[in-house]
């Protein structure tokens, strides 16, 4: 999956570079609580295990993963739509 340019009217970004488990998911969860259903969040990670685990956990919580991309070495962007 690829995150396309242009995220609609509102795109919220959460920079989690330097964060490890479980703070990656704790902070993602807290940020999503601020959003309305259907709004999207782009999360930046540099911790490789988080790139697999956070999207899996988000899906388990009912959210939709819209895309994952790796713009550079050891940097990933995950786009999620709040349930």
């Amino acid at each position: 999956m690829v995150i396309r340019a242009g995220y609609g009217d509102k795109m919220v970004e959460l920079d989690l570079k330097g964060e490890v488990c479980p703070y990656t998911f704790v902070k993602t969860k807290l940020k999503l609580e601020e959003l309305e259903s259907g709004e999207e969040l782009v999360i930046l990670f540099d911790h490789a295990p988080a790139v697999e685990n956070v999207p899996r956990s988000l899906k388990n919580e009912g959210h939709k993963i819209m895309g994952i991309e790796q713009p550079e070495d050891k940097l990933w962007k995950v786009k999620v739509r709040k349930a």
Partner: peptide
């Protein structure tokens, strides 16, 4: 303590 943080999830 890290585990305790995770258990709140």
């Amino acid at each position: 303590l890290r585990m305790s943080v995770g258990l709140t999830l």
